[in-house]
Amino acid sequence: MKADHYLDAIGLSCPMPIVKTRNAMKEAETGEILEVKTTDKGAKADLTAWAKSGGHELLEQTEDEGVFTFFIRKG
């Protein structure tokens, strides 16, 4: 999937992935896609909940060797 914005949150722990995602999303326009990479296992549930509460769309979520990748479309 192709993203318009990219955020590397690898190695960061709660609440940093959410805070950085929020800040990165502020820079994006509605409809644009943000790709987030994180190693925080809690972020899996957290980013899903965050996207939902903010009216964003979680398009895709994958895991590869402990790195979680999220594609979120700004709502």
Binding site: C14, P15, I18, V19, T21, R22, D46, W50, S53, G54
Partner: peptide
């Protein structure tokens, strides 16, 4: 501070 920043990051 974790709850506060997470809440603020959720607007």
């Amino acid at each position: 501070f974790n709850i506060a920043t997470a809440a603020a990051a959720s607007e």
